[in-house]
């Protein structure tokens, strides 16, 4: 029997983008306010999982052809690399640097080295969550 998932598909298409944009907001809100790479990553993973659930696994694999284990490695490297950066400045590992920049449209924003670190965390969290769930889900036997 072929079931019609029209409602689910339509809602997913809209909701996924809402969740994704909120996750990006959370990611940038981090550091001084609630948010950050971990929670943002989980939210992104939730949005992508919604895609996996409502559409077929195979369809999404074509849309998102990522090797998640490599993404974990990349994320870890970014995070460690941020820490290593301070070694070259002669400071202790993971020392944080920050500065203020004037950006058109956005105005003055604070940029810190915690941001790339968070990006690494973000990638790791997204990839770990998806990899775990997809690996278990793929096992049909």
């Amino acid at each position: 029997m072929k079931t019609n998932f029209l409602l689910l598909h339509t809602i997913t298409r809209i909701v996924t983008f809402i969740i994704l944009s909120f996750s990006i907001f959370l990611f940038f809100a981090g550091h001084n306010n609630p948010g950050g790479g971990f929670i943002g990553g989980l939210m992104t993973a939730a949005a992508l999982l919604l895609l996996y659930i409502s559409f077929d696994m195979k369809t999404i694999k074509v849309v998102l052809p990522f090797d998640y284990s490599k993404i974990i490695a990349v994320g870890l490297l970014i995070a460690i690399g941020t820490g290593l950066n301070s070694l070259f400045h002669g400071d202790a590992f993971l020392t944080q640097y920050f500065d203020y920049f004037d950006v058109p449209v956005l105005g003055e924003i604070e940029l810190t080295t915690a941001l790339p670190f968070d990006l690494g965390v973000y990638l790791v969290v997204v990839a770990v969550a998806l990899l775990t769930i997809i690996t278990i889900a793929e096992d049909d036997a």
């Binding site: 490695a73 490297l77 460690i80 590992f93």
Partner: peptide, 22 residues
């Protein structure tokens, strides 16, 4: 302060991550 003390932890961590690619 001496970053030397961190190297026995950092080196295997970084190399372990790099090994994932191969």
């Amino acid at each position: 302060m001496n970053n030397l003390v961190l190297l026995p932890v950092l080196v295997p961590l970084i190399m372990g991550v790099i090994l994932i690619f191969f």
